[in-house]
Design a protein around this nucleic acid. Structure first.
Lengths: 208, 208
DNA sequence: AAACAACCTGAGTTCACTTCAGTTTGAATG
DNA sequence: CATTCAAACTGAAGTGAACTCAGGTTGTTT
């Protein structure tokens, strides 16, 4: 089940939290966060608008939760995919490939994450929102460090020419995530082709 | 003068349009569009909130205008910088270098553009907003075509290996503009260094 | 069946953006 | 110098979507 990913452990049996997150991902992903009325999400779940506040402190709190969960997933997938690879170039390729091994739901989550990244910059007034924001921010840094560390390992092993690993990592990551700004499943180019193209680009950028 | 760039030809002598745009770029660029109150922009210019509506139909109309102007500038600079270069690799390098030859005001404009790109996806209700949106959208496509055409020229001349020029162009462009998400003039790495790093990455990506 | 927490609701509030119904300013004209 | 006119501006009122409040309902647990 698609929603299984975004179920948190400590939820009551009649909780609609997961359903709200799924509905919000759909609406925020298709029409954008600002363009989506919070009450539309309630309608889609089949509850009144005010019931949403039983689960999330605000519309922004829901958005931040979606972003945090997606960042957590991205980080976990990266670690899982690159673990146990001894050859730096293979590790690099694996990192790129997992970034594009995603379901349609996850594509929407990536799109939401990219479109609202700047939300993580400024502090939130309410406590629960701020908690999610800080968590998301740390995960962003963790993902950046994932890439930086991968590059540094390759450089120290002599597999990659020595360059500023941090800036190079941000460039690689920036190129990968920029895809979610324009890619649509209905588009002309299938995702595996894009993945191969980016993989080649990243290898040439880093290893030559 | 910095504001000279964003003065339109047909303005009365006491018009505050340019001053509003400058103030809006500052505020939207520092705190973000959503985080900035429209009335704060009025305060900074030294007029009442309602006076803003003499120049812009809405807060969004002002934002779209800023984005359109920045896209126009980016396109014009690209064309100017790459014209007359006969060597594809030199043309490529020139394209990257001009992308990073920017003032602090222009950095803020790029940041605003990147952060609110998704606004261009859905139609606007009011006429003047929609006009700006469509113009901005066409300029985005023009900038994408600028890069695609540059790459195709290099491929047909045999200077670059043949690849899908459109996807490759989007990847190059995506990597370049992703810098404006994290770069701050106060940061540790100076912009010329970042420019050199990206220039090298792009050349390896495209020409090898 | 009593108690309790989880879950939900309609009515009302707030805040920023926006509209309205005019007023002021200053340059051009007779 | 007075008149005219459009550009520029204003305070007060309106709007809509996010949010709060003061309770009501439901299902589980003891």
């Amino acid at each position: 089940m698609v929603s299984a990913r975004i179920v948190d452990p400590d939820e009551g049996p009649r909780s609609k939290r997961a359903a709200i997150l799924v509905a919000a991902v759909e609406r925020f992903g298709e029409d954008g966060y600002e363009n989506t009325k919070w009450s539309e999400v309630a309608d889609r779940v089949g509850i009144g608008q005010t019931a949403l506040y039983h689960y999330f402190e605000s519309k922004a709190h829901c958005l931040l939760t979606i972003m945090r969960l997606e960042l957590q997933r991205s980080h976990d997938m990266f670690v899982e995919a690159t673990a146990g690879k001894s050859e730096p170039v293979e590790e690099l390729r694996a990192g790129v490939r997992t970034a594009f091994s995603v379901t349609e739901q996850e594509i929407r989550q990536m799109r939401i994450l990219q479109a609202n990244m700047s939300l993580l910059a400024t502090p939130r007034k309410s406590k629960r929102e701020e908690t999610e924001r800080v968590a998301a921010r740390q995960l962003v840094q963790m993902v950046e460090r994932d890439w930086t560390n991968l590059l540094m390992r390759g450089m120290s092993k002599g597999a990659f020419p020595v360059r500023d690993a941090h800036t190079l990592g941000l460039a690689v990551l920036g190129m990968i995530v920029s895809v979610w700004r324009w890619y649509r499943p209905s588009g002309a180019i299938p995702l595996p082709e894009i993945s191969d193209m980016i993989e080649g680009c990243v290898v040439r950028m880093v290893a030559e």
